[in-house]
């Protein structure tokens, strides 16, 4: 699984970051991007899905391998 942030949609709510800090990086302005290449280890898949379901801007998606 990969987590993807649509940076055009992200408004920096940081919901994804507080749910899954292992998977998300936040810049100095509070905007999010996927950590590394966005790969989600199996034990973090549930967190990744929660990040998707809690972003008010619908900016987070996951892509199943």
């Amino acid at each position: 699984m990969k987590i993807v942030i649509d940076t055009d949609k992200c408004e920096g709510h940081n919901r994804c970051y507080s749910i899954a800090p292992e998977l998300i990086e936040v810049d100095d302005y509070g905007y999010a991007s996927a950590a590394g290449d966005g790969s989600v280890p199996p034990e973090l898949e549930e967190k990744a899905r929660l990040a998707v379901d809690n972003c008010p801007e619908f900016a987070v998606t996951v892509v199943e391998d």
Partner: peptide, 8 residues
């Protein structure tokens, strides 16, 4: 102002 309000 955003940099003053980031999580960090």
């Amino acid at each position: 102002i955003l940099p003053y309000f980031s999580p960090k």
